[in-house]
Amino acid sequence: MDGERVGADRSGPGPDVRATEAGVTTGALARRLGVSPTTLRSWERRYGIGPAERAAGRHRRWMPRDVAALETMCRLTSAGLPPAEAARLARSEAEVAGPPQDGTAAGPPAPVAAPAATGDVRQESRGLARAAVRLDAPAVEGRLAAAVAGFGLARAWQEVMVPTLHAVGRKWASSGDRYVEVEHLLSWHVSTVLRRHTRPPVAADGPATGPVLLACVPGEQHTLPLEALNAGLSQLAVATRMFGAAVPAEALTAAVRRLGPAAVVLWAQARSTASLPLAQHVAETRWGVKGARSRPLVVLGGPGWAGRPSQGMLRPTSLPEALGTLTAACGRLP
């Protein structure tokens, strides 16, 4: 019935209904979830939450992905969501995250422990995607914190946060207006965790070594990669100045002249915002007294610069590479 609330068992999948390659029966799954077989058939008919395969004789066989979707459905309805909305989120989670790696039914997302081994990176990314699709902010925060604690900031960004953001973005691009709220929530919490791991700004070592200036080019709103770089540099005690999204060209040039930075990082997510003349102008900007004038190292970040000539400018392809480049420019060991 539309108004029913289901109290799903959260102790983890029992041995009688562990989803194997052959799948599990409707009766076994109903016992596991604490609902009736009639309820499962009703959900399939009304909301499209059904098994992907049927055995001979049209018997239902629930595969790992089906079981994971139903456990999500039960968890959300027990939390008070209407069944139709719970079913939509459960289907979306299954589409984005796919089945668990070990072939068993997925358990609830929290509490989240720090990853114990390097092989857990893909599992962490899947868990983060599931939590984001459910709009489960506490679980998203917990998984992001666990990833940073278990893998370190650079690897958590490179191998957990970025793949999950890309996966959600692809679903948004291919599904019309769906998943926009998921991407916004995930981006917000990624930003929150990155800033939580950003140490307070430090002063540059002296007039010979200025800070690293971080800015998105005019028209560019994607700041998360710069936030990750800023956090990583702060942990290495490198002085930075973060200017964030869509910095006007005149303001960028004025900041370079005022600060005398050791390096300027220009982020462009799209080719439409990647202005090579602006990058060259920044690279040629000089300051200081005659006979000892300096100019910054310009680092181009983001896919918008792909295929563009960048003589005298660097284009690191990963966060660890960018950290190494910039710590060297500032005279520090990476």
Rank of each mutant, 00 (worst) to 15 (best):
A84D: 14
M63P: 10
P111F: 03
A270C: 08
V148Y: 00
G307A: 08
V264A: 02
L259E: 09
T240Q: 10
T325Y: 12
G119H: 03
E250M: 05
S191W: 08
R257K: 14
A251H: 15
R31H: 08
D102K: 08
E321K: 02
C74M: 13
A270I: 08
V289P: 10
P218E: 04
P320T: 05
G7H: 14
Q235I: 02
R5N: 14
P13Y: 13
E95M: 13
A208N: 05
L153T: 09
G307H: 06
H222P: 04
E4P: 08
T209A: 07
P99I: 01
P218S: 06
V121T: 13
E181Q: 12
R32S: 14
W267F: 15
G304D: 04
G301V: 11
G206H: 07
P100G: 04
A237Y: 13
T72V: 14
S275V: 12
H59N: 11
W188M: 03
M313W: 02
A263S: 10
T77Y: 03
T38K: 12
L278E: 05
Y47E: 07
Q280V: 13
R332M: 09
T253C: 13
A270E: 07
G80D: 09
S175R: 15
W267Y: 14
T253G: 07
H281T: 12
L185V: 14
V217E: 00
A274W: 00
T38I: 14
A329V: 06
R295T: 08
G324A: 14
G291I: 11
R257A: 15
L153N: 01
G331I: 05
W267H: 11
G12F: 14
P51V: 06
G304P: 03
T104N: 04
V247P: 02
G232M: 04
P201M: 09
W287A: 01
L165R: 07
A328I: 07
V190M: 10
V299I: 03
V67H: 00
G232A: 14
A262Y: 05
A117T: 14
A203I: 01
A268H: 05
R60I: 11
R271Y: 01
G307E: 06
H197A: 09
A28C: 07
R257G: 12
L33A: 05
L185I: 06
R130D: 06
L29H: 04
A306E: 12
T38Y: 10
G302W: 08
S318I: 07
A131F: 00
G302A: 05
A129V: 02
P211S: 10
H281E: 11
L323Y: 12
R134C: 06
H166N: 15
G312N: 09
